[in-house]
Design a protein around this nucleic acid. Structure first.
Lengths: 149, 149
DNA sequence: CCTATATGGTTGCGATGTTAATTAATTCGC
DNA sequence: GCGAATTAATTAACATCGCAACCATATAGG
């Protein structure tokens, strides 16, 4: 009857929260100077990296739920960081794009953000860093059973 | 000039969010039946595992910020899951304890929670699971520089 | 065509995350 | 002792999370 709960000190959910907190703290502190939240930064990053795209695509890439993203987009649009235009053939959809101002914000934070990323990588060591990403991917992926048969 | 931002698809913060989401989804679904949130469950678990303790201690062990915990405790107290009593010598503090009803809720979910934990462990393999926890701990710990010199 | 169903987004609601300010009680330093 | 700095916890304010319900449009079938 293996119904023993794992000790909270070795609990995967809690460990994930703590790690995220440790990684994000310096980023949040950096973004505060630009008046951005961590989620808004993720949206900018995705639009910059992958180009104009639908709301649903951004939600997937930035790991945001649609309801959250919907509200975040209104804020970002008001701030002039992004544009929202109607899809040409499907009027349900809208295409999101980063503005020049949005690009400016990315540029203002690029150097420091890159430095933070490098610091974390250095702290863990390249090997550990890659191993961690691989393990996290493994945790995430196994939701849909493989399309075998 | 290493100022290149890491690709969002290999971004540690996003990977951590996704992994957490993957791990928590079945737990949340389980807890919904008991009318509990994930955070309330963590508080119960900590009080059950470590015994009566201060608010600050619970916050640390459950990885919750004090303002969040403060609200959560009111809810849980109203539900009769915990008690809050004044510390004997320091009147600023309060001692939290789980009630019989709180223990009941843990008991109701123990089996399924343990099964979920086992399933994740099995999916990753014991070795990967432990390695992941170790790496996450490594990410978290390195905040305070070693007390050298 | 016209209705039933599915899809892309939004809104409502209750709860938590995050920072800053606040209150109350304790401890420190002179 | 007594006021200044600390500490434990709460409150305030704003943003996001997560679920459910909801519009609007698009697609499928008859």
């Amino acid at each position: 009857m293996n119904n023993k709960l794992p000790s909270t000190s070795r609990s995967l959910p809690i460990a994930l929260i703590r790690a995220r907190e440790a990684v994000m703290a310096p980023v949040r502190s950096m973004l505060a100077a630009s008046g951005l939240t961590e989620q808004q930064w993720r949206v900018l990053r995705v639009l910059d990296e992958c180009g104009p795209q639908d709301t649903t695509d951004v939600a997937e890439r930035a790991s945001l739920l649609l309801p959250s993203l919907s509200r975040i987009l209104r804020t970002m649009s008001d701030k002039g960081l992004i544009t929202r235009t109607q899809h040409s053939t499907d009027r349900r959809r809208q295409t999101l794009a980063i503005t020049a101002q949005g690009l400016d914000v990315i540029e203002q934070n690029r150097e420091e953000a890159a430095a933070i990323a490098v610091a974390i990588k250095a702290r863990l060591g390249d090997e550990n860093y890659e191993a961690l990403l691989d393990l996290l991917e493994l945790v995430t992926e196994e939701h849909k059973p493989p399309p075998s048969a």
